[in-house]
Amino acid sequence: MTDRALSGYRIVILEDDYYQAQDCRQLLEAAGAKVIAISATIPDLPALLEEGRIDAVLIDINLGHGLSFDFARALKAQAIPFVFLTGYDAAMLPDDLAGSGYLTKPADAARIMAALASAAAAR
């Protein structure tokens, strides 16, 4: 793991499982990122953006009570990079999001950070 590979990155985590969200946050913070929000539900994007820029979003597709595709579309519309982290296969992605960054659970820290770094850098 490249030490502090995500240094200064402002990242949002969308994950309905508390433990995984915490785990992920610790990982990203250890890599130097600033996790500006973790949420089990779809967050209020404009409100988040008021607090500052978002460099990347890590999204679990299934949030327990709904799918996060619309949120992903909203991010895409604002050109905010995101990566799906999900137990589903990539085939689950709708056509308009088919090319998005995508990681299968369980993903180790290296892959998560590499995917986020590349998504953020591609902006």
Binding site: D17, Y19, Q20, G87, P106
Partner: peptide, 11 residues
Amino acid sequence: RVRNLIGMVRS
């Protein structure tokens, strides 16, 4: 679910 569970177990 299996993947999620494993993820959770890891966490």
